[in-house]
Write a protein that binds this DNA or RNA. Structure first.
Lengths: 331, 331
DNA sequence: TCGATTGCTGAGATCGGTTGCAATAACACT
DNA sequence: AGTGTTATTGCAACCGATCTCAGCAATCGA
């Protein structure tokens, strides 16, 4: 497989390279016999066009960066998975960029992607997105964010309705008979996380109950602290809502180590609907986010914006997913 | 930020573009004052070189593909995480390619990466790697595989010693007093998986005990079947070794749903050492693979091969990680 | 039958860099 | 002062495509 350039194919087919180029990228502009002949020859040689050269010349590539803080977090992993799929159904190539929460890295990826003529990018942030910072980049106006953003932003976004999710969780738990429901807010300063917490605080205050936030740290030990807090209470809540599935896992684990059983002693709900939750012990009741939809929609929004400059903000409906980590309150 | 090409900088600095080029990529070839002047101007303009153009001309880029079957699998996610790190410490840019186990996609990524002049690639397979198939690609001889491969392959590899891992697991369990130890082999036809299973079969036959494979399917329900099998036995094993952490999670979950408790009723061990395991219920005892090392070494091997053609096969030592899912056998 | 329109293909500039080679400047040495 | 090096920089071709423009043949209308 020596060097296979467009000229090689052109020569082999006895045409000029511009014709070969057209045969590939603007098929209707070349006589069908010629085209088929060229394509056949190219096929035989095992020729494919250089995306590099193409991008360089056309100033537009099919690379779509997906910027996530931590791929180890199953939420982002699932997002990445569905998005790769969604991306290449549409002819894009998803590039996964992991920032570890470092804003400098995020910027680095931005300039890199700009340099690679990515048509747009997707950002799933771990902190509130500073849209102004985004726009400092030439590339910043071609980004869709998977989170809510501040103000009347000109950046397209996809989110799920966190408040609605909390409503579902609360309804589920109350219908089971729980009246004392705590909350553990793990990590993150995203708007999404904020919204969930706010919704909890507001909605759980309804009726006779009072909100109870067991812990709101964002470090790895937050769940352990929440568990400790729980154990020290003389009248602990009979149910707990965790800000997301990972936190729920950690809470259940920490509780378990102190002999507290879920759901026998306390019900615990997550929020995300990770596939992993089905394999947890016990399988986790949770509020499912339509992650696959988010991925698809993110790309659609980006394309739409690129096309006609429209900036949409889509908010999706979450869905209750009852598994085994919740039950009636311990009598 | 209008179009910022090398010529713009050259004009601004009053030199020829070749000088600018050299100032960046071969600093010693240009007088230091000139260089600094150019760099300053470039800095001021916010100029960075186009990796595309560079790659096109030099026929070598810094893109390193990491090909994994499923990013949703925490093992690959952790690998990806440590490798992105390792990669950009060395000036590479890791491109995560997810195949979903589809060999066609793998090939697709190969040709794509070849086209992008990737210096080499890393493959973490989900099936036995067919090294001949690899070599059909021009790119195939620049790949390091994270698994053992068949025969006297000319492809560098990194693995951990699966047999040793099983020895550690067995020793741990036996020292706890277990004599009847089952095995659940989840997914995958990798050599790694095969090695573990073989080691179990051979080593568990020592002493008076006889091997007991609860299930060896690779589908999502394998763990459930294993659990069912366990429940139906009149004298089930007192401990179970799972082929990897994910399987262990699923087994514990399935067992839990039938009221079997871990480790009270049965001890369960995993294999991988996922961070997630620490948050499982109960925290999972497992055999840790040095994932971070694997990533670093994979890149080193690739570089070495590129440099002097050497093909090494590194096998790393696993390590016992005792958490809470194992204890003495139920009396 | 002839100019006009349309369809298809070739020429050559261009995208943003790199690099071998030539030219010039600077310095060393006899 | 004359000549041989060596350090710097400019020139121009090239990487592998795309794209505008022009040329040419075939088709069309009158």
């Amino acid at each position: 497989m020596a060097d296979l350039s467009i000229d090689v194919v052109a020569k082999a087919a006895g045409v000029h390279r511009s014709t070969v180029s057209r045969a590939f990228s603007r098929p209707e502009a070349v006589k069908s016999e010629t085209r088929e002949h060229i394509l056949r020859i190219a096929e035989g040689l095992g020729y494919t066009m250089s995306p590099l050269a193409q991008a360089l010349r056309t100033k537009t590539s099919t690379f779509v960066p997906l910027i996530v803080p931590d791929i180890t977090n199953p939420f982002f992993a699932e997002l990445a998975k569905t998005m790769t799929q969604a991306a290449d159904e549409r002819g894009y190539q998803l590039l996964l960029c992991v920032t570890n929460g470092d804003p400098a890295k995020t910027e680095g990826y931005f300039t890199a992607m700009q340099a690679m003529y990515a048509p747009f990018g997707i950002v799933a942030p771990s902190t509130k997105v500073d849209t102004d910072a985004l726009k400092r980049f030439d590339f910043g106006h071609k980004v869709v964010v998977i989170d809510r953003v501040e103000g009347d932003s000109s950046v397209p976004t996809v989110t799920v309705d966190g408040r609605r999710g909390i409503v579902l969780a609360l309804e589920h738990l109350r219908s089971l008979g729980h009246t004392s429901i705590g909350y553990v807010s793990g990590i993150s300063g995203t708007h999404t996380a904020q919204d969930r917490m706010d919704a909890y605080l507001e909605l759980s205050a309804e009726g006779s109950s009072t909100p109870l936030v067991l812990d709101s740290g964002s470090d790895p030990d937050a769940a352990a602290r929440a568990a400790k807090h729980f154990l020290e209470m003389e009248k602990p809540p009979t149910a707990i809502i965790a800000a997301n599935d990972m936190v729920a896992f950690a809470v259940i684990s920490a509780l378990g180590q102190s002999g507290i059983r879920v759901p026998e002693d306390v019900s615990v709900m997550g929020f995300d609907g990770l596939a992993l939750g089905a394999r947890f012990n016990p399988p986790l009741t949770t509020v499912r986010q339509p992650i696959a939809d988010m991925g698809n929609i993110a790309i659609e929004l980006a394309e739409k914006q690129n096309l006609n400059g429209s900036v949409d903000h889509v908010v999706l409906e979450p869905e209750l997913l009852v598994r085994a980590s919740t039950s009636g309150p311990r009598k």
